[in-house]
């Protein structure tokens, strides 16, 4: 492709990181004997190769920051489940569905990650993008969305190793359900 050594090194680093993510799947599947690893090792290499082809590395993924996001994400997805279950069981079914479109500067992969996260958070669901704006469906149209989007966007941007310009304008009110 190219003979610039910096680019090669970046590609190699991405490959190693992805292999590091994929490799723990092997023991989880029960492949912990030497014979199993003879098959599993090449499988990890093949999966890494496929991953690099399907999603070429754009920005370096910060594994530590990705892991740091997990607890908060799990907690908010728990809140999301409780929130929607409460609305479903409530006799009067408190719903006030509506739409919002929120601008986002994340790259495409980052938008998908943000969308997946928002689809599990309380009261929000992403239905694709239009002109770089996320189309967000809300169970409660009065929900304050902009703050939560900025907050999550900044987190994902940091995970993707972008310069976090959005950091200064972080609002404090945020991811709550109401």
């Amino acid at each position: 492709m190219t003979d610039r050594p910096g680019k090669h090194r970046a590609l190699l680093r991405s490959a190693l990181k992805r292999a590091l993510i994929l490799a723990p799947i092997l023991p989880a599947l029960g492949a912990d004997t030497r014979e199993a690893l003879l098959l599993g090792g090449p499988a990890v290499v093949a999966a890494t190769w496929l991953s690099l082809h399907l999603l070429p590395p754009q920005r370096p993924l910060r594994l530590i920051r990705f892991l740091a996001l997990l607890p908060g994400f799990l907690w908010r997805s728990l809140l999301g489940g409780v929130d929607v279950a409460w609305r479903a069981f409530h006799p009067r079914m408190p719903l006030n569905p509506g739409w919002a479109s929120v601008p986002s500067d994340l790259p495409d992969g980052g938008k998908v990650a943000l969308g997946a996260e928002f689809s599990l958070m309380p009261g929000t669901l992403v239905a694709g993008t239009r002109d770089g704006r996320l189309l967000v469906h809300m169970l409660d149209a009065d929900q304050h969305l902009e703050g939560a989007v900025r907050l999550e966007e900044a987190r994902i941007a940091r995970m993707l190793g972008q310069p976090d310009t959005a950091h200064e304008s972080l609002p404090t009110s945020g991811a709550g359900p109401s």
Binding site: S77, L78, G80, G81, V84, R87, A88, S119, A127, L139
Partner: peptide
């Protein structure tokens, strides 16, 4: 219950995704 009670496709999708994920 959310799929059955909620009024439109997108609201139902909320119920399906979030509640089932937590379950």
């Amino acid at each position: 219950v959310g799929i059955l009670r909620f009024p439109d496709t997108h609201s139902r999708l909320h119920a399906l995704t979030k509640a089932d994920n937590l379950g």
